[in-house]
Design a protein around this nucleic acid. Structure first.
Length: 850
RNA sequence: GCCGAAGUGGUGGAAUUGGUAGACACGUCGGUCUCAAAAACCGAUGCCUUCCGGGCGUGCGAGUUCGAUUCUCGCCUUCGGCACCA
């Protein structure tokens, strides 16, 4: 055995061996329970970052731990390979997105392999493979048939100067990131997935996911935003048009004194009178430029314009002026709001501004509200007034009664509304999955025939960054014939949102090579659902909701049997680091800083805030460097030990060194005791040996609990560190040989999921044959764990004043007696009366005195 | 703005169900070894203090309790998401 630990050789040796024996290849089998652990697959940006190291280290601990516990583990990896950065690289450096992506994947695969992650690499795929996206195209056709994919008009960010669509990310301060031109809205016909058809099920099932963090479920519920209320119809004064509104406050309908429409509302132009046309057009143009997020925020100036026409309140007969208002969004409800200024703050502000009458219809109990004197809307519960036959009811029960009344009278219907909107999947970009549709002048949009799939993304395109998607200029791609009538037709040149690929990849891993269908039913049913899914919190709503939606769609298409994709979810925190910048050169990479100075100009470097590691801020650490210096085991150990998985992790070079030092310490402990690994474990009789054995078994118990229950790897590792410290602390080694052997063997077995290379090596050095994977997870001996004595904390009036040791078997009365006999206790109670003595068995005594 | 989190020593973090605040590690200080240094090993380390004793202390302010990092209410700060970044 080498005296010192050298990770480079060891890691290469074991990675090669795992590879050769295909140790982590997964196959369905009946003799073991399956366990599918998955980490969110990476976008192939070129190099792995610390966030990946952390995510995949966490996943690998779970995979290895479950394997040791005897599960048949599936642990796959692949690439979320479509997306904008590849196109940006093409525009900036002239590299083809395909070439760029493939090279990046090759590099990142190499990096991941160096980390010793126990993946079944035979299942690897990239979403830009036609063998993957062809099935997505097929599912799209099936969704189209079922009406789950449809087209409607929707707006995009448009740069007039570049003649191209911009992603939200490409819009900086409402201007184009490339040319600075002000961004405008442009209406395009786009494809949508009808996720709202599943809104109820997606909501209901959040209550069947006990393995998910409650915070994520809450966010999803709020995102879906189900609300129950009424749809009420308001006829215009001349009776020609009907404006339909959705409201959850039908109890206030008698107080509706005006109508607000979204500026985008289809009736907006139609209802505008000639005198008002100029004002209205000006207002619409202005609102179009406003940010949607800001438009609805509370402190944003509420503005509107009168259309010149009126509608009639069906219950009160009130003549209501119709306004367009900037805070009404077309996307939510019907795009029209019945305005009740007395009981809605926005309506209140609006009514005051434009001098619109107000009528109080809900009054706080025992108080009378006067509309003129109100300084804000009354939104709390109260008693109905000015509401005909409903007067005197409390407004909550009036909600139900008025809803019934509206239905009886034919004024409206009870209705459920969602905040959730349908999922727009069209992207005017090249590097994505082509949408398999053909536009025919006589047949309209016609789906490509299933047997003609895949619609392959052509390679020979040009990238200029302006003038829209290269596909739309690629005649050989878009010129085609109608699948229905054979006439010349134009192919759809939009591609899918990349969230589509990541919505079903986890299922494809179950059967990545299936050639007949998106999924092989047997294999999918064997492996799915994913037992443990692990990834960043930033995906808490969108990705996870889309994946849940897609799972239900795949079920309804008959592709698989499950309704929920991920049984347990772990959302990990981000990896952060202090930012550094130079007054001259802006943000600096850590390697551009030498002795606190900028390596380019020598200026003093300014230390900034600790933020999420990101390329834009350059506060990134290259895992390659870390692995080259300390080895993969240290990189893994650091990312697991520095913080619990769900919290943010702050980068700290010194803490990395500490982890490396610990592995050296383990190595040396084995080296220094290398002569004892043939000794019988239970042979020692010294009390010190018994103490060490107790610690060993307590550690097994603690580590198992920490991994299994809560993935608290940091405390699990701390417990093993304590055990190693106990080995070093043994005074009479000769009397404890067996106990030391047991402690060290246990250390290596408990650390195996975290730092597999060094553990494999030490395990073989200890004279064991075969991989440590084969030995299984250790079990704690409960007998050996028992303590003989307990330390009891003694408090006087809640303050710790003494500590006493009692036999583990001591009764409450014994403990009380011993407490009162204690000198320190006597000192504090001497001239006082004892009022009460509280005994918490095995822990604490509190003596209350006065 | 809306939704969801998080605030504990010089630092990262720990603390089963309301029961010793600071496990483990980093850093710092001291010691052993060495010609010396590194490494390693051993020890100390929340703050204050009138120091063999005591006080204060888990973002801030209240409350419940014999007892609160933990529960309740109200603030402050930071972070994530907000539908075309992935």
């Amino acid at each position: 055995m080498e005296e010192s630990y050298s990770p480079a050789q060891i890691e290469q040796k074991w990675q090669q061996r795992w590879d050769e024996t295909a140790q982590y290849k997964a196959e369905p089998r009946d003799d073991r329970e399956k366990y599918y652990v998955l980490e969110m697959f990476p976008y192939p940006s070129g190099r792995i970052h610390m966030g990946h190291v952390r995510n995949y280290s966490i996943g690998d601990v779970v995979a290895r731990f479950k394997r040791l516990q005897g599960f048949n583990v599936l642990h796959p990896m692949g690439w979320d390979a479509f997306g904008m950065p590849a196109e940006n690289a093409a525009i900036q450096h002239g590299t083809h997105p395909a070439k760029w992506t493939i090279e990046n994947i090759a590099n990142m695969r190499k990096q991941l392999k160096k980390m010793g992650l126990s993946y079944d690499w035979e299942r690897e795929f990239a979403t830009c493979d036609a063998d993957y996206y062809r099935w997505e195209q097929l599912m799209f056709l099936q969704m189209f048939d079922k009406g789950l994919a449809y087209k409607k008009s929707s707006s995009v960010n448009w740069c007039e100067s570049c003649q191209t669509v911009l992603a939200n990310e490409q819009v900086e301060d409402e201007c184009c990131w490339r040319c600075g031109t002000e961004v405008s809205d442009k209406e395009l016909d786009q494809w949508f997935f009808k996720i709202t058809a599943y809104a109820d099920e997606l909501l209901e099932d959040t209550y069947n996911l006990p393995g998910w963090p409650e915070s994520v479920l809450t966010m999803q519920r709020n995102w879906i935003g189900r609300s129950t209320g009424c749809e009420i119809n308001f006829k215009t004064e001349d009776g020609a048009e009907t404006i339909s509104v959705f409201t959850t406050r039908q109890d206030t309908v008698f107080g509706a004194t005006f109508m607000s429409l979204a500026p985008e509302h289809p009736l907006a132009q139609k209802l505008t009178t000639a005198e008002q046309k100029e004002d209205v057009d000006g207002f619409i143009a202005k609102v179009k430029k406003q940010d949607k997020k800001k438009r609805t925020s509370e402190d944003f100036e509420k503005e509107g314009v009168f259309t010149g026409t009126y509608c009639i309140n069906p219950v009160s007969g009130c003549k209501m002026p119709i306004y367009l208002a900037n805070f009404v969004l077309m996307d939510y409800g019907t795009g029209a709001v019945m305005a009740v200024p007395t009981h809605d703050q926005r309506d209140f502000d609006f009514a005051r501004k434009y001098d619109i009458p107000m009528v109080v219809v809900v009054s706080p109990e025992g108080e009378e509200l006067n509309a003129e004197d109100m300084s804000e809307a009354w939104t709390a519960p109260g008693v109905m007034v000015n509401s005909a036959q409903f007067n005197g009811l409390d407004n909550e029960s009036a909600k139900e009664k008025i809803a019934d009344y509206l239905e009886e009278q034919g004024f409206g219907t009870k209705s459920i509304n969602y905040r959730l909107r349908d999922w727009g999947v069209s992207r005017q970009r090249y590097w994505g999955t082509p949408i398999p549709i053909v536009y025919c002048d006589s047949c309209g949009p016609v789906p490509v025939k299933a047997e003609d799939l895949p619609v392959v993304l052509p390679r020979d395109v040009e990238f200029k960054g302006e003038g829209g998607s290269p596909l739309a200029q690629h005649a050989a791609f878009y010129e085609t014939t109608c699948p229905k009538c054979g006439a010349p037709a134009r192919r759809e040149t939009d591609t899918f949102d990349t969230f589509v690929e990541s919505s079903w990849y986890f299922a494809r891993y179950a059967c990545p090579h299936t050639e007949e269908a998106p999924l092989n039913r047997d294999e999918a049913n064997y492996w799915l659902p994913v037992d443990q899914y692990i990834g960043g919190v930033e995906h808490a709503v969108m990705h996870l909701l889309y994946a849940r939606f897609f799972t239900k769609v795949m079920r309804d298409l008959g592709l698989l049997d499950i309704s929920e994709p991920f049984t347990n979810l772990l959302t990990q925190g981000m990896v952060c680091k202090e930012t550094q910048s130079c007054p001259e050169h802006g943000w600096l990479y850590p390697e551009e800083v030498q002795d606190g100075r900028c390596s380019k100009c020598g200026s003093e470097v300014i230390g900034g805030r600790t933020e999420k590691m990101s390329k834009s801020k350059k506060n990134v650490v290259d895992p390659d460097h870390l692995i080259a210096t300390y080895g993969a085991d240290t990189a893994r150990l650091f990312s697991l030990f520095a913080a619990p998985p769900e919290k943010d992790l702050e980068w700290n070079e010194q803490s990395v060194e500490g982890c490396y030092r610990f592995l050296n310490r383990v190595w040396r402990a084995v080296y220094e005791n290398s002569d004892i690994f043939s000794r019988p474990i239970a042979g020692d009789s010294a009390p010190e040996a018994r103490t060490l054995r107790r610690k060993t078994h307590q550690t097994i118990s603690k580590v198992t609990r920490d991994i299994e229950g809560s993935f608290h790897f940091n405390t699990a590792i701390a417990a093993v560190m304590e055990l190693v410290n106990s080995v070093y602390a043994v005074k009479d080694k000769a009397a404890c040989c067996g106990a030391i052997r047991e402690a060290l063997e246990t250390t290596v077995r408990l650390l195996a999921p975290f730092v597999p290379h060094i553990c494999e090596e030490l395990w073989s050095i200890m004279g064991q044959n075969g991989s440590i994977d084969a030995i299984g997870w250790p079990e704690a001996d409960v007998e050996l764990m028992q303590e003989d004595e307990k330390l009891i904390v003694v408090q006087i009036n809640g303050k710790v004043r003494a500590r006493i040791t009692v036999p583990a078997s001591a009764s409450n009365a014994d403990v009380e007696e011993q407490t009162l006999a204690d000198d320190q206790v006597k000192r504090f109670t001497a001239d006082k009366t004892i009022r009460k003595i509280i005994v918490v068995p095995g822990k604490l005594v509190n003596v209350v005195v006065a």
